[in-house]
Design a protein around this nucleic acid. Structure first.
Length: 106
DNA sequence: CGGGTGACTTCCC
DNA sequence: GGGGAAGCCACCC
């Protein structure tokens, strides 16, 4: 069914847009928050397809790792720093910048 | 159905 | 901390 893929894609996009400036979320986190904990890989596909229509720089790998390749990764880092995100070594300081999706409470 | 792809994860050295 | 291997899952031919 194509419908379901589209729904997921939509949910994923929406979730990514919910990440505020200066915050980040991991692929797994985005997938889970979108309602599909097993689809972190689709998150990647959505990001690749969507291009600049999403704040793609706010999605990082587990532990704050930048998953993009060399140049692109550097670019992502610059964009994040520009938003006020701090880094610890080559990773995002997750303790401060990991976005908390609170769809289940409050 | 099967094989290729990927901005993943986790484990291990 | 960096690098490699294996595992997993969904998407797309």
């Amino acid at each position: 069914m194509k419908r379901q893929s589209e729904e997921r894609e939509t949910a994923i996009r929406k979730t990514i847009r919910q990440i505020p400036r200066g915050k980040v979320a991991t692929y797994s986190q985005v997938a889970a928050s979108a309602g599909y904990p097993l689809c972190h890989r689709q998150v990647v596909q959505v990001l690749r397809k969507s291009g600049d229509s999403l704040p793609w720089q706010r999605v990082v790998g587990a532990g704050g790792r930048i998953a993009l390749k060399r140049e692109a990764g550097h670019d992502q880092r610059l964009r994040l720093e520009m938003e006020g995100v701090k880094f610890r070594g080559s990773r995002v300081a997750m303790e401060e910048h990991q976005h908390v999706f609170r769809t289940w409470e409050v």
